[in-house]
């Protein structure tokens, strides 16, 4: 394993008699973007709080950048930036005053990055307005600017795209991708909007009711959890009248197939290795305009892992 920025082993946390995290282990290599995924209440936010040393764990061990958050949290907080779900901004102060204040807390002497970040997140025109008058998306972008003020080595982002419009989501994801690529910033990102993460995360950690369900790269998870491949093919192939009606299941080249709509067939294959022979067989009879694996999205993977109970560790 590469040099780890975050190394958490068997971490447990209870609140008011309720087990919020149950022996969860988490490894984030330096310079990688890791998605911490799970439904609401799965323990994602608690994990971020523990890693920052703002709450104490009940069991297990943790190191963040070489420090134990529980006993030596200040250096972790100094090298990390965080965007919490509520953004934690002062509504009576302007956007610039908020950034000025947090710059002082994080010991940023040079104020030039404030202007650059306001510019980057398209907030320059609104910098002197009280944050209370900002839209949800603007607050989120300002919260992100706040997290980036001191050029952190490590970023914790809790639902960073909540409340953003599609353009805002695109802007934020692109910015984070560039940040990781250009500065090598390690990012731990919590979200339940899975499709937004596919283009940015190197690996994933799935939590479910405080327990670790699975973790690994998308490829590792696919290999371990995907039992079959669903291939959608746009083709002129005629699979016979019996299966010609939409939805009815037939077989072609030994694989179950059904017609989704005229000219579109969906095959269920045992593995990716079956794709080429299938396409060759179809091409011998008809044309093929497109072929897509439809169950390899992160979302499909997530549901597959959940339904299998996550026993197969990678």
């Amino acid at each position: 394993m590469k040099d780890l920025m975050i190394d958490a082993q068997c971490v447990s946390k209870r609140f008011d008699g309720q087990q919020v995290l149950d022996e969860v282990s988490l490894a984030v290599p330096r310079g990688e973007v890791v998605g911490l995924l799970g439904s609401n209440g799965s323990g994602k936010t608690t994990m971020i709080r523990l890693l920052n040393g703002v709450i104490n764990r009940d069991g297990g061990a943790m190191r963040v950048g070489g420090h134990d958050p529980q006993t030596d949290g200040t250096p972790i907080r100094a090298m990390s930036g965080i965007l919490t779900e509520g953004a934690g901004l002062y509504h009576e102060l302007s956007g610039r005053d908020n950034l000025d204040f947090f710059a002082k807390l994080y010991g940023v002497a040079d104020r030039a990055p404030i202007g650059q970040l306001l510019d980057q997140f398209e907030l320059t025109a609104h910098q002197h307005k009280p944050v209370g008058q900002y839209s949800t998306g603007m607050k989120k972008r300002l919260g992100l600017a706040k997290a980036l003020l001191h050029e952190p080595q490590l970023l914790f982002l809790d639902e960073p795209t909540n409340g953003l419009d599609p353009e805002g989501i695109q802007m934020v994801i692109q910015y984070l991708r560039d940040l990781n690529r250009e500065r090598g910033t390690t990012i731990l990102l919590c979200s339940h909007v899975l499709h937004q993460l596919e283009s940015i995360c190197h690996r994933y950690v799935f939590l479910e009711q405080g327990k670790l369900l699975a973790s690994g790269t998308q490829q590792e998870l696919e290999t371990a959890y995907m039992q079959h491949v669903v291939l959608r093919v746009e083709t002129g192939l005629d699979i016979g009248e019996a299966a010609g009606s939409e939805g009815a299941i037939a077989a072609y080249a030994g694989h179950p197939v059904r017609q989704i709509e005229p000219g579109v067939l969906e095959f269920r294959l045992p593995s990716k290795n079956a794709i080429s022979p299938l396409l060759q067989a179809i091409l011998a009879e008809s044309w093929v305009h497109a072929a897509d694996i439809t169950n390899r999205s992160l979302e499909a993977l997530y549901f597959e892992i959940r339904s299998s109970g996550g026993e197969r560790h990678v």
Binding site: N52, G88, Y90, L105
Partner: peptide, 14 residues
């Protein structure tokens, strides 16, 4: 009440 205490506690201040 304004949910800003969280931001302060996450900052590197004593």
């Amino acid at each position: 009440e304004r949910r800003t205490l969280e931001s302060l506690l996450f900052a590197p201040l004593e």
